[in-house]
Design a protein around this nucleic acid. Structure first.
Lengths: 329, 329
DNA sequence: TGCTTCGATGTTAGCGATACCAGGATCAAC
DNA sequence: GTTGATCCTGGTATCGCTAACATCGAAGCA
């Protein structure tokens, strides 16, 4: 930077200003500085800048896994919105492991990010304590059950499952099974199951047809379907905890030559891209993952101006998407 | 840090050492420092450390899009391997936009990462120049056609498509169409098409049945199939530039009631998770995206020790995966 | 003309760590 | 007892930038 200053015949402070706050510098000087910088191939060192200003313009994102299209939308929304403001994303994957998450958060904190976005898992109390003490904006996403460390964006998984369950019931299905993914650290799956159960209870239907599978992928749907059929051969609909499982069920039906929705109604959760494409179309809950990411970015950006405090909790809601995998009325 | 030092009754230099190089500090002192740090909730400021040591233990990753499961595997491999060594990932998405990519690289460089991984796109000459001048380890991934900025990991898309094409021919298909995704910045799709063409030429088959679609998703497969059928109603096989397109073709066949592989053979590229699950199973090219990420990490880590220079180019190869979407011999 | 006001630039002092060089114990060997 | 090697610890000078304040000339205004 000193070299640029010398070459442009100004002080280094002016160089700094002409990059960070160009409108405080006269046009002529700004031009000379830009020219000198170009000639020297100068790239401002943000590390030094961060240290001096104690603002990093970085946001840490902690996700359990990248394999899940769910979180991808959120990550994308977050990244897009942050990039618009010149922020960058520091990404860490934890693999649903609490120990890893704690380590990841500690490592992130060392870089003094301006915010941290936690996605889709329950946290170790130690993590919560560390974060609370760290004076950093924290947004928890997807789940909307507190208590929260700081801020949160998401929607009610229970309400969504309830609405979906009611829809299935209203279409005349009576022997409805549920394929669950009971991961101990993912309370949103508990919430979905609870909503589903309520819908069945309301309708006076048997709520006990639940298959707990350890796989949120296609294979989980297949094995869940098999388990349910073993207990209730007259099963007429299956709701799955995730779209991917539901697609797995659809594939298994295709393999068996079972027509959907006539022999079996199917519904999922998430509205992944494939839900609209797979024949006959998967009825599901659309969850605005991207919106969650954008909202999380807004919350963090809002904190930067030293502005609002308090604990914003944003509920982005959901939407039921009707497709061919459920029969009409 | 000074507080920790005072509380532990040592100099700040010793505190620094007991975090960075614990074996240079006596056990007693290390213990006291750790205790003091715990009591004070001290988290070392890596920003300051980076500035002083001019090593950041961060790696920048530039991907065109997160929507593509291709790159996810690479990102995951990269992130996993780097995390093992205590490195963190700075993620930027560019949306296949060269301008964005240039901006992203410049912004990344400002943070002085120890390495940069570029994924799956051609680069602006200005970007290449900037990177070359920046004294940073650069790895380009997926494509293996030079010239490279620095290092590269990938495989030959042409060889893979050629092998796949030969397989389709060997199974007795004669009217073979290709669904292409001719993105101007993605030369790997050109390479795939060229390999395919060679396979057909070799066999004396008509290589002109190519549908260029502007969508690498399911809809691209569907519309590609329709375009091919319009030109060749006797089409008996379709190879797609990506698995997702191929799945789109399979779905369209299901919709039409066409049996696969009897009425139509189908093959894709990528071996995404769904390829194994969709009935009757998609024959495709497995590409070890995760391995690419891991190898990229290794290359960057190798550079850190001031070790090897030169230009390692790593070819990870590919594998043809046979599934039910092609008939036997 | 003399005063304030304001916009553009310069000066100084850190930000919180590490690199590098010294210094003081301790210990084995002669 | 002296020497030299080894181990641990401390002092000092940066790393490259920005916050905060100081400065200075050119307007603006009575």
């Amino acid at each position: 930077m000193a070299d640029v200053a010398r070459r442009a015949g100004v002080s280094s402070m002016t160089v700094s200003r002409s990059f960070k706050t160009p409108d405080l510098v006269s046009a002529a000087v700004r031009e000379r500085v830009a020219e000198a910088a170009r000639q020297l191939g100068y790239v401002p060192n943000l590390v030094a800048g961060n240290l001096a200003s104690s603002r990093s313009r970085m946001v840490g994102a902690v996700v359990p896994t990248l394999a899940n299209s769910n979180f991808l939308g959120t990550l994308k929304g977050l990244s897009d919105r942050l990039r618009q403001e010149g922020y960058q994303l520091l990404l860490t994957e934890t693999g649903y492991d609490r120990r890893e998450e704690a380590a990841a958060v500690a490592a992130l904190l060392g870089r003094r990010p301006d915010g941290i976005v936690l996605t889709g898992a329950e946290h170790d109390p130690a993590v919560a304590r560390t974060l609370r003490g760290a004076q950093v904006a924290v947004v928890e996403t997807w789940d909307l059950r507190g208590p929260f460390i700081d801020m949160a964006v998401g929607f009610s998984h229970r309400a969504a499952a309830l609405a979906l369950g009611r829809l299935v019931v209203s279409r005349g299905y009576r022997r409805i099974g549920y394929v669950d993914f009971p991961h101990p650290q993912l309370r949103r799956f508990r919430a979905r199951r609870s909503g589903m159960r309520k819908a069945l209870d309301e309708a006076g239907l048997d709520p006990s047809l639940v298959a707990a599978v350890g796989d949120e992928g296609y294979a989980g749907g297949r094995s869940g379907l098999e388990a349910l059929l073993a207990r209730a051969p007259d099963l007429d609909a299956v709701v799955c905890a995730t779209d991917v499982q539901a697609i797995g069920v659809l594939f298994e039906c295709a393999r068996r030559g079972w027509p959907v929705p006539e022999r079996l109604g199917v519904a999922g959760f998430g509205d992944f891209e494939i839900a609209a494409e797979v024949p006959p179309g998967l009825t599901t809950v659309r969850t605005n993952g991207r919106g969650i990411g954008i909202a999380a970015a807004e919350l963090i950006l809002g904190r930067q101006e030293g502005g609002r405090t308090g604990t914003p909790i944003v509920d982005l809601g959901f939407e039921i998407v009707l497709r061919g995998s459920l029969r009409d009325g």
